[in-house]
Amino acid sequence: MSDENIIVVENLVKKFGNFTANDNLSFEVKKSEIFGFLGANGAGKTTAIKILCGLSFPTSGNVMVAGFDAYKQRNLIKKNIGYMSQGFSLYDDLTVKENIEFYAGIYGLSRKLIKQRFNELVGKLGIHDLKNKFVKDLPLGWKQKIAFSVAIFHRPRVVFLDEPTSGVDPITRRQFWDLIYEAVESGITVFVTTHYMDEAEYCNRLSIMVDGKIEAMGTPAELKDKYKASNMDDVFVKLARKA
């Protein structure tokens, strides 16, 4: 982790008519940090992520992602982030290789670079046997690992993960987090949203949103201390019930 801020949010407000989805959010995410963004259904997580990914405008406040402004430089933001959601972003009817070539192509990587990085990836994941298989024929664990590799294939500065390991077995989950650690090692910042607190425990720092506001922020240990809870689930429930 370094001191450089990759995401800076100051007094972010997003309104839909009279409804305030994001109520004065402020936080920073540092380079190579794993930042967990938690909140109940409807707490406003999705709205905030859309703004951070350059998909929608804030109503007011300052938002900088990867050094770019969320009002004026949305296209530059999009070029410098990666995204992976629980509903896989890979095409079932394309092979692993075709999927990667397609996504890399979108980000304007040269053929030579794609080939080079693809070969690296195949070596790293050990997917010589899988690379020409259709995605639909892969086990769930592999789909998730490959989807993550695709999301960071263009070496974004920050990658957004939406409930990345929901439903996978405990071993695959750990292999997945190994990949995340590796990405962090290479300087990528990781922004994770999840409902599942065991996943939250892997984050360096967490924020918990309740009704559009950030109610708590800190390391998992700090939060457990502060709310006198034995695990993050209790922290979360205490916070949400208070509201």
Binding site: G39, A40, N41, A43, G167, H195, M197, V237, A240, R241
Partner: peptide, 10 residues
Amino acid sequence: TTGVDAVSRR
């Protein structure tokens, strides 16, 4: 409880 937040789950 898949895909449901922690409070609702509890």
